[in-house]
């Protein structure tokens, strides 16, 4: 760069400029992230290391450094928490695959051509409107409604108690039977939880090129083979995305026992302990997501060079 002629402005090279502008596009989010996420996240971790944290004039007041003592306490002595944890994780273990299977199934049906397809698709998104926020809480808390729903399930779907008795008499173990009944009775929740997932899956199925199906058809593949050999691998990135979404959705749900408990503790102003529990819960979610990621990494097929 020569400075002989006073101010000669050299334009920035295109590539470097592009880098800066890319950063510029992200900056508003980055500020928000630092201020409204990173700081709270880190301070939540700090809270958890103290005996007592209380709001005071102009900030927070910390009393008595506890280190990881309260973590140990939560995982060894807090019986309700441990019970809630195992219960929630147990539910997750069967709910996540069920939601996935259900949303794939629904998306495949909705992806075929039939009359009223648009209407059907519109209907299956409704759970997002109806079942989010407080409406679902009221519906759940409404004892009469849940009784009626239970009655509906029983009479319409599997004859309720008789079905359980039948299973037991056939010789299915008690554990399996109660579990199965839980799943069957949870069908409402299942359908309501898979609104967004069905949508994601549907858009995933739409992105599979037609030519692949046509080729398979000419080669004489049956619908069954086409589903397992083309649809599933091609949709696998979306399935994983749905799996992550479902895990996060279930674990951050307002009706989640652990979330409820954290809320209650926070309401009683034991902020330090609420932070301990939420950090533990977050670590578990991260571990779950990481596990799913590692387990499925080999199975996911990416149809592009982005990797």
């Amino acid at each position: 760069m020569s400075r002989t002629g006073g101010r000669v402005r050299h334009p920035m090279p295109y590539e470097r400029k592009k880098k800066w502008f890319g950063f510029l596009f992200v900056v508003p989010w980055l500020i928000g992230f630092a201020y409204f996420f990173l700081v709270p996240f880190v301070s939540s971790f700090f809270y958890s290391l103290y005996e007592k944290v209380s709001p005071a004039q102009g900030g927070m007041q910390f009393l008595g450094f506890a280190g990881i003592r309260r973590y140990v306490e939560a995982l060894s002595a807090d019986t309700p928490f441990i019970l809630q944890l195992t219960f929630t994780l147990q539910r997750m273990v069967y709910q996540v695959p069920l939601v996935l299977v259900f949303s794939i199934f629904l998306a495949v049906i909705l992806n075929t051509r039939f009359r009223g397809r648009l209407l059907a698709r519109g209907i299956f998104f409704l759970p997002v409107i109806i079942a989010s926020g407080i409406v679902i809480n009221i519906l759940r808390g409404d004892t009469v409604a849940s009784d009626m729903m239970a009655g509906e399930r029983g009479s319409a779907l599997f004859q309720g108690i008789q079905f359980e008795v039948l299973l037991l008499q056939v010789g299915v173990p008690v554990d399996v039977t109660t579990w199965l009944m839980q799943v069957i009775n949870g069908i409402f929740e299942l359908v309501w939880k898979s609104g967004v997932q069905t949508l994601l899956m549907l858009s995933g199925l739409q992105s599979i090129p037609h030519t692949v199906y046509e080729a398979a058809d000419i080669e004489g593949a049956t619908a069954w083979e086409t589903f397992w050999k083309i649809t599933m691998p091609m949709a696998s990135p979306h399935i994983i995305l749905c799996a992550f979404y479902t895990i996060v959705d279930i674990s951050t749900d307002y009706s989640n026992l652990i979330i409820l408990r954290i809320r209650d503790i926070a309401r009683n102003l034991d902020l330090a302990y609420a932070s301990v529990l939420s950090i533990i819960w977050f670590a578990i979610i991260m571990a779950l997501v990481g596990l799913v990621f590692l387990l499925t990494r080999r199975m996911v097929y990416y149809n592009d060079d982005r990797g």
Binding site: F33, P55, L271, S275, S278, I285
Partner: peptide, 24 residues
């Protein structure tokens, strides 16, 4: 790294950072 942070914000339940966020 930053995109990883985006994913992190999806993963962390809002309830767990609610109190410090309130103080912000």
């Amino acid at each position: 790294l930053l995109f990883g942070f985006v994913l992190l914000t999806i993963l962390v339940p809002m309830q767990s950072v609610a109190i410090p966020m309130y103080s912000q």
